[in-house]
């Protein structure tokens, strides 16, 4: 679905005469291979390069070096830009700054309108996508009256209506409250399960990546860790080094293990820790 080879992106700042003032390497030889239908979470602190990567996948930025194929299309070629954007949709952080229309359904129709979809087909898609994110009953509402989580779901519907193979969510929950965050993450999972859309979720909330198929950790423009959530979260110390943190239960499990208790590594969920603790207690009882 997405294949990046040695992708490099440099932000070059120039002074007034056009001389190079500074070069910031936002992506440093990134390799990435995403299979269709995968749910991938990308973690990294602010400025680690994860948003830059997302913008490349949507052909919003041009790489300094390396190649990137989205759905088999080379994003650096001019004629591929629109097809790439259509097959890899993108949801941004600020819900207000990506809703264009003043009525929910008109906003969802904006993408299909741009790609020249016939009118009846637009209506069908708008209805389907709003239903898919559970916002159909708000179709005639003004986006200004919706909560943050609802606005983000509208933004997701707007992308879904373009029938992409893959959706990149660039910190979609950073400006939301806990309820809004849950709504958005649940919606992303439902889309992934129901229609097999590949999802790339960029976030720095650890609780949100627990259910991903694969987690990538980025730091200074490089992919520094990669694996299942369990593999990633079993390395508490390393995550802290990358300015990330770990769900409370994982930290607690780690602390207990360090205190000599027989608790497995990479505990992700509360139920797992409950079972692990009770097992230890039973063993202690028998002795």
């Amino acid at each position: 679905m997405i294949k990046a080879k040695q992708l490099v992106h440099e932000y070059i700042r120039r002074d007034e005469e056009g001389n190079v003032e500074s070069v910031t390497t936002a992506l440093d030889h990134v390799d990435l291979n995403v299979k269709p239908g995968e749910f991938i979470a990308i973690l990294g602190h602010n400025g680690s390069g994860k948003s830059t990567l997302a913008k490349h996948i949507n052909a919003l930025l041009v790489a300094s070096e390396g190649t990137l194929l989205v759905n088999g299309m080379d994003v650096s070629r001019e004629e591929n830009i629109l097809p790439v954007r259509q097959s890899a949709g993108m949801v941004f952080q600020n819900p207000d700054n990506q809703i264009i229309a003043s009525v929910v359904e008109e906003d969802v129709g904006f993408g299909p309108e741009n790609t020249g979809v016939p009118t009846e087909e637009i209506w069908r898609r708008v209805e389907e996508s709003l239903a898919a994110v559970g916002m159909l009953k708000y179709r005639h509402h003004s986006p200004n009256k919706l909560s943050g989580g609802q606005k983000q779901r509208v933004a997701i519907a707007g992308v879904v209506a373009m029938q992409p193979r893959c959706i990149v969510l660039d910190e979609p929950t950073a400006m939301l409250d806990p309820n809004g965050r849950r709504e958005v993450i649940r919606t992303a999972h439902e889309l992934n399960r129901a229609s097999g859309v590949t999802i790339l979720l960029i976030t720095h909330y650890m609780e949100e990546v627990v259910d991903a198929d694969r987690v990538l950790v980025m730091d200074q423009g490089k992919v520094v860790m990669q694996g299942t959530p369990r593999e990633i979260f079993s390395q508490v110390g390393k995550l802290k080094e990358y300015r990330l943190d770990v769900p409370q239960v994982t930290i607690l499990a780690d602390l207990l293990r360090q205190s000599g208790l027989d608790i497995p590594r990479g505990v992700l969920r509360r139920e797992e820790l409950v079972e692990a603790v009770l097992r230890v207690a039973q063993v202690e009882d028998m002795q």
Binding site: K55, N58, L60, L82, R85, Q86, G89, M90, F92, N94, D96, N97, Q98, I100, E105, E106, G109, F110, G111, P112, E113, N114, T115, G116, V117, P118, T119, I122, W123, V126, G158, V159, M162
Partner: peptide, 26 residues
């Protein structure tokens, strides 16, 4: 900042000016 964000969001949704656009509510 909003203008910048919005321009990017519109581009990401394949906005390319008026040419070749259809209408949801013609």
């Amino acid at each position: 900042r909003r203008a910048d964000d919005l321009a990017m969001a519109m581009e990401a949704r394949c906005y390319n000016g008026g040419a070749g656009r259809t209408k949801m509510k013609p």
